[in-house]
Simulated scan of single mutants.
Amino acid sequence: MTTLSDLIAKFQPATPIAIPDRWTQGRTAYGGLTAALSVQAALMTEDAKLPTLTSA
């Protein structure tokens, strides 16, 4: 079974990600997973001067 930690550890913003079939609803991922990957992409942005993330 793939965990959220597994997906985030393998995540690269410029590379397509394979979302496990059990994690989808119809043809889209659940909002929580999409939000988690979006936050991870923002955290991986080293060159940008981003404000502190206080909520998502």
Rank of each mutant, 00 (worst) to 15 (best):
Gln25Glu: 14
Met1Arg: 06
Leu37Glu: 05
Leu7Tyr: 05
Ser38Pro: 01
Ile17Thr: 15
Gln25Met: 03
Ile19Thr: 07
Leu53Ala: 13
Gly31Asp: 12
Ile17Gln: 13
Asp6Phe: 10
Leu33Pro: 06
Ser38Met: 09
Ala56Leu: 09
Asp47Lys: 15
Ala18Asn: 14
Ala36Gly: 00
Met44Asn: 08
Ala14Leu: 04
Arg27Ala: 09
Ala56His: 08
Pro16Thr: 06
Trp23Met: 10
Thr54Leu: 13
Thr52Tyr: 07
Thr45Ile: 07
Phe11Pro: 02
Val39Glu: 08
Thr15Gly: 01
Ser5Trp: 00
Thr2Gln: 14
Thr28Ser: 14
Ala41Val: 02
Asp6Lys: 11
Met44Val: 00
Thr15Leu: 15
Gln40Glu: 10
Asp21Ser: 15
Gln12Arg: 12
Arg22Phe: 08
Thr24Trp: 03
Leu53Cys: 08
Phe11Gly: 03
Leu43Gln: 10
Leu4Pro: 02
Thr3Gly: 08
Leu4Arg: 08
Phe11His: 09
Thr54Lys: 14
Leu43Asp: 04
Ile8Lys: 12
Thr34Arg: 07
Thr15Ala: 07
Gln40His: 07
Asp47Leu: 14
Thr34Tyr: 00
Gly26Met: 13
Ala41Ser: 12
Ala29Asp: 01
Pro20Trp: 05
Leu50Glu: 00
Ala56Asn: 04
Asp47His: 11
Leu50Gly: 06
Thr28His: 08
Gly26Gln: 05
Ile8Arg: 05
Lys49Ala: 13
Ala41Ile: 01
Ala35Asp: 11
Leu33Arg: 03
Ala42Val: 12
Thr45Trp: 09
Leu37Asn: 05
Asp21Thr: 15
Pro16Ile: 03
Ala18Asp: 15
Leu53Lys: 06
Lys10Ala: 11
Thr3Val: 02
Leu33Gly: 04
Ser55Cys: 04
Pro16Val: 00
Gln40Gly: 00
Pro20Ser: 01
Pro20Ala: 03
Ser5Tyr: 05
Ala48His: 05
Pro13Met: 01
Glu46Met: 02
